[in-house]
Simulated assay, not measured.
Amino acid sequence: MLTTLLLLRHGETALTAHQRLSGSGGDDPPLSGTGRRQADAAAESLAARFGVQAVVSSPLRRCRETAGAAARRLGPEVRVDAGLREADFGAWEGLTFAEVRERYPREFAAWQADPAAVPGGTGESFASVTHRVERARDKLLAEHAGRTVLLVSHVAPLRTLVRLALGAPPRTLFRMDLAAASVSEVTYDGAGEATLRFLNDTSHLSHL
Rank of each mutant, 00 (worst) to 15 (best):
L2W: 14
L2A: 14
T3A: 08
T4A: 12
T4I: 08
L7G: 07
G11R: 05
E12R: 12
E12Y: 10
A14S: 15
A17L: 15
R20K: 12
R20A: 14
S24W: 04
D28F: 04
L31V: 11
S32T: 13
T34W: 07
R37D: 13
A41K: 00
A43V: 01
L46K: 02
L46Q: 01
R49F: 00
R49E: 09
G51H: 10
G51A: 13
V55C: 02
A67W: 00
V78A: 00
V78I: 00
R79H: 08
G83K: 02
L84K: 03
A87H: 06
D88T: 05
W92T: 06
G94I: 07
G94P: 02
L95A: 12
T96S: 14
A98E: 15
E102F: 11
R106C: 01
R106L: 11
W111V: 02
A113Y: 02
D114P: 08
P115F: 09
A117P: 02
G120A: 05
G120H: 03
G123R: 01
F126D: 11
A127H: 04
A127F: 05
T130K: 12
H131V: 12
R132Y: 04
R132I: 04
R132S: 03
V133C: 09
V133W: 10
R135G: 11
A136S: 14
K139N: 12
L140K: 04
L140D: 09
L141N: 07
A145W: 04
R147N: 08
T148N: 05
L150Q: 02
L150S: 02
L151C: 05
V152K: 01
V155Y: 14
A156Q: 11
A156L: 08
T160D: 09
L161F: 08
L161H: 10
L161V: 09
L164G: 14
F174C: 01
M176Y: 07
L178D: 07
A180E: 15
A180P: 14
A181N: 08
S182D: 07
V183E: 05
V183C: 07
E185G: 03
D189R: 05
G192Q: 07
G192P: 07
L196M: 08
F198P: 01
T202R: 10
